[in-house]
Simulated scan of single mutants.
Amino acid sequence: MTRVLMHFKILIVGLFVLKSFGSGLPDYYYKMKSGERQKREFIKIMLPLIKKSNHLIVVERQFVKKFFDEAIKTGFRDLPSKNLSKLLRLSRKYRIKNLFDRRQYLKRIDVVPVSLALAQASVESGWGKSRFVREANNIFGHWTYTGVGLIPAGREEGKTHRIRIFASLQRSVNAYMLNLNRNLAYQSFRDKRLKYRQEHKDFNGIAAAKTMLMYSQLREKYIKILVGLIRDENLLYYDAYKPAALMDSA
């Protein structure tokens, strides 16, 4: 297969995904003028997506805790194959090398502060109005090197990264949280989150934002932008709700 034909097929796949699932925020949103009303609407759209992603993480965390509680009681003997298979899938998903490393599961399978997710969604997507959101459901600026994706405007010569295409906004949020929970670049985020949990302290968006040094080439400036946005838009308000399932120490 020639390289031209291969890239043509990749392009068709990307277009099929977008055509099948649609992309971007609701049409009415793009007709809104920038301002406080538009920001509030963006938050209203993003909140259920962020909460759903966190809920899925909570379900996975509960499974891990139950699995190890039961395994310890039986001395890790006669473990149900169904549960072992699920644990194996989670170990691969979160890149956990030791299948029975309970501490690593609970360190990585944990929720992301809602205010942090809202702030990063706002910054990375220009309050949802960026080309990446409109054309690829990509809220958090995720890159890909698979060849399937949008070519960023102004990409430097010799660079091969593209903007990843998601089938839905929800999948973009899911990928963002998985990225923070398993990527080596965000180890300090996970370390700090675990430390706060062990000390029974509230790991809010500002505390989390201060670990996002590697998320952007802006580095320290990026952290200041996030912290400023969280404060200016009163986003800490959305960190108030904590599911009972998370009231534990890892």
Rank of each mutant, 00 (worst) to 15 (best):
G128I: 05
N179T: 14
D69T: 13
R89E: 15
P152D: 12
Q104V: 14
N138S: 06
L90C: 07
E135F: 13
S172A: 11
N137T: 06
T74R: 15
Q170H: 00
M177N: 14
E124R: 01
V59W: 01
R61A: 14
I151G: 00
N83C: 07
A121F: 02
I139S: 11
L116T: 03
F132G: 00
L106C: 03
N83S: 15
Q62S: 01
A121Q: 00
K93E: 13
F132Y: 14
F132R: 07
D110Y: 15
L106Q: 11
A136V: 06
R89F: 11
I57M: 13
N137I: 03
V59F: 00
S115M: 03
V58D: 03
E135M: 13
Y176E: 08
I163L: 05
R92D: 11
G141S: 02
F166Y: 15
G126P: 10
I57R: 11
F100N: 06
H142W: 05
P80I: 02
D78G: 04
V123G: 00
R92Y: 03
Y105P: 09
T146V: 12
F100D: 02
D101Q: 11
G128Y: 04
V112E: 09
K65S: 09
P80Q: 09
Q170Y: 03
I96R: 08
R102Y: 13
S168Q: 06
V111N: 01
K82F: 03
R77G: 04
R95K: 13
R162H: 11
S125W: 06
V111R: 10
D101F: 05
V133E: 07
V64M: 00
P152G: 05
K107Y: 11
G75K: 11
K52W: 01
S91C: 12
M177H: 14
G128A: 08
F76S: 04
V148E: 10
K159T: 10
N174R: 04
V58Y: 02
N98Y: 14
A175D: 13
L178G: 10
L169T: 12
R155E: 07
F63T: 02
D78N: 15
I139G: 12
R131G: 06
A121V: 00
D78I: 02
T74Y: 02
V173T: 11
D101G: 09
M177Y: 08
G75V: 03
S172Y: 09
